[in-house]
């Protein structure tokens, strides 16, 4: 290797060390364009993130307050009992359903019994121990029509059929010495 070949690298390096060339203006323009674009993307992502967080928070708050309002007990109204011992309309059956037109008797977990005659005018409170649980019939004298039920239907099935027919009508329940008319399963009004 000649002297020049050996030292050409070092010579060039020493010359290049402090050498500068001003780049064209267009280079910075392109760089600036990219930087501004990146900034806009970051800003947009932040706005979207904030909007999503706000929507989620508002939804959670709405659900929270709505839930609380649903379970709110209005003054004068007794609290709805959700214990297993409460009357569950679907589970109760009618006793003595074979006798169409007879009075329907029922009781509640509070020990109050209501008995209704055919005319539906009198409602009496009796001792629970005497009577099985039953679904109450609307005061408007809806008669139990068991004629449509086939004769060979088992009693349990018969009872279920009757219950299904009655459930469509408003029923009454008793809680804490007060009779309530239940229009739906979830609403009750003082009767």
């Amino acid at each position: 290797m000649s002297f020049e070949e050996k030292h050409i690298g070092k010579s060039i390096k020493s010359k290049m060390d402090n050498f500068e060339i001003v780049p064209p203006e267009s280079v910075w323009d392109n760089i600036e364009g990219v930087l501004l674009k990146n900034k806009a993307i970051v800003r947009r992502n932040r706005i979207i993130g904030a909007a999503v967080a706000t929507i989620v928070l508002v939804s959670l708050l709405y659900m929270f307050f709505n839930f609380n309002k649903k379970n709110e007990v209005k003054p004068g109204e007794p609290e709805i009992q959700s214990s297993p011992s409460s009357v569950n309309i679907y589970d109760t059956v009618i006793s003595n359903t074979a006798n169409a037109g007879s009075s329907v008797q029922g009781s509640t977990n509070k020990g109050h019994v209501i008995q209704q005659n055919n005319s539906g005018n009198n409602i009496e409170l009796k001792d629970k121990n005497k009577i099985d649980t039953a679904v109450l019939v609307e005061k408007a004298n809806i008669k139990l029509n068991t004629d449509t039920i086939p004769q060979n239907t088992p009693p349990a099935e018969k009872e279920k059929v009757v219950v299904k027919k009655i459930i469509k009508k408003p029923v009454y329940i008793v809680q804490q010495d007060t009779i309530y008319k239940v229009d739906t399963l979830s609403k009750k009004k003082k009767w």
């Binding site: 290049m16 060339i21 001003v22 780049p23 064209p24 267009s26 280079v27 910075w28 760089i31 930087l35």
Partner: peptide, 30 residues
């Protein structure tokens, strides 16, 4: 940029390549 542009020119065969290298480098830097 002036010093870095020299490096870009040393590594490239033409001015266009040198400009591209400088531009990409600064974007990476930022």
């Amino acid at each position: 940029s002036s010093k870095l542009y020299v490096i870009c020119c040393r590594y490239s065969s033409c001015k266009e390549d040198a400009k591209d290298i400088l531009q990409d480098s600064f974007i990476k830097i930022f």
